[in-house]
Design a protein around this nucleic acid. Structure first.
Lengths: 270, 270
DNA sequence: TCTAAGGCCTCCCGTAACAGGAGAGTCAAC
DNA sequence: GTTGACTCTCCTGTTACGGGAGGCCTTAGA
């Protein structure tokens, strides 16, 4: 029989940990002095402690280990536990690898003095109802002229959510741009005249929050698209712009605007 | 200005999280109503929140993010942070991969109905003082005869720690075994007669706690050695046996004994 | 036999990043 | 005016322990 300190030295498990395992019922001392409360461990308990450590090393929680060790577990169930654990661990490894890849991409960006790419995040957006008009317009800033058209055809401006633009060209164009302008909606409305009313699908997007003037959006796009490529994603749909903050009258050089660039993406198979 | 629920819906960040970020000073609302305590967020805060999410995604703690966002950080410092983070993340990935590898090995073992390999753990053992005799003996059980020799040559049995054996043959032998028998010591003693007194080096070992009779140790060795191989380790020294529990008179079939097998190992380069 | 040092006990707090819930106040629409 | 949705603060719980306070127990030395 060992006192807790001796058992701790023997196993290299801290006294705190041993007491915790006692408290949680994972490994109770072979004997506890009724009057002093001293814990006494026996060498026979070493295998159980070792098994605990081994399972912990495999990534099981103490609660799972407790259940597994509580006696009545079959080889079948154990197999099931381990197989499940492996699946979780596979996900874990993949996530951590992707995180590492993002870090390495960021470092590459930073070597070129660009700090912006810190801010690109991948997120899921839900399906959204949209009312819009789509036209070929002279250039990007000209999209501003489309919003009044939408507003005048929709009865109640109170129903409108965030203004958005969707760019259907897959590359940058100086003129004859295929643009769509409209608003997000909380509920579907009836379509009027030349407006489109549809539910825009949900998507995985690379999102970048641009805080600054519209005339620097092109630069922002370049960075986002390079980020997408460097992180092994592929463009999976037309670009979306959400105007989170935009004062009227609209100006191209107002630095207070907040514009979100959303590039639908899908992961390229490794 | 958005109320917290609106801002939450807009960003897909939970209300709880936003309040937590307020509390920790990471992202305080643009305005807080003095009387009601209501939090009001502005669209201008979206970029900051996005940056927080991005850094969190890269694995930084909220505390680190707080420092980085607190304004006065140079590109140099940011680069340093990210580079450090990458190093950590590389370790992380490696650890998780190794854990996965252990799980897969275990599954392979379990397919063959062996559950024992759950209990093999890698651990570091410190250098230890040892007093022992080394001889070529008839077979493994014959090692028992060596311990009295050690005891009689050492004055005080009170100084002796755990009995151990060290097997210097790299393979299983039926006879003429090169065995060493002795005891761990707390402090060095003077050597006497034919005993050796030396400090056994520390090592990384694959350790298996065998709870059962000596005559089943061979089977245990087989499993441990297979585990070592399957987990891409290489044997790095003679095997050690520690007799944590062993009643006298010594019998080969006493199932209450607890014997630890330690196989010094080193990782094989991937 | 007394004492001092160390070992052991229980109880409480802290960790990171929130989630859940109680109880009370606030806002907006009908 | 009322209802129901929203918001507030405060408290607890999560995992696997570590640190420390305050008090009892054991053991070695004087």
């Amino acid at each position: 029989m060992f006192k807790i300190g001796e058992f701790s030295a023997l196993t290299h498990i801290s006294v705190k940990t041993l007491r915790y395992y006692d408290e949680t019922g994972l490994l109770c001392p072979a004997h506890v002095d009724r009057w002093t409360g001293y814990r006494y461990y026996s060498a026979q308990q070493l295998p159980r402690l070792h098994r605990i450590l081994a399972l912990k090393d495999l990534g099981f929680s103490l609660e799972q280990i407790g259940k597994a060790l509580h006696g009545n577990i079959t080889l079948q169930e154990l197999r099931g536990m381990v197989t499940l654990r492996r699946a979780e661990q596979e996900n874990r490894v993949r996530e951590e690898q992707e995180r590492l890849a993002r870090l390495e991409t960021l470092i590459k960006f930073m070597e070129q003095e660009s700090t912006m790419s810190v801010d690109v995040v991948i997120k899921e957006v839900e399906p959204q109802w949209v009312v819009s008009v789509r036209e070929t317009i002279a250039n990007y800033p000209a999209v501003g002229a489309l919003y009044p058209k939408v507003i005048e055809q929709v009865g109640n401006p109170g129903d409108l959510g965030l203004p958005i633009a969707i760019w259907h060209d897959m590359e940058h164009k100086e003129r004859d741009v295929d643009g769509e302008a409209g608003f997000l909606l909380k509920q579907p409305l009836a379509a009027h005249g030349t407006t489109n009313m549809y539910e825009m699908g949900g998507a995985t997007v690379a999102s970048y929050m641009h805080h600054g003037a519209f005339n620097r959006l092109t630069e922002a796009y370049q960075n986002v698209l390079r980020w997408v490529e460097d992180n092994h994603y592929r463009i999976a749909g037309p670009f979306r712009e959400l105007y989170h903050y935009c004062a009227t009258p609209v100006r191209q050089d107002d630095e207070s605007y907040v514009t979100e660039i959303q590039v639908p993406v899908e992961k390229v198979a490794a």
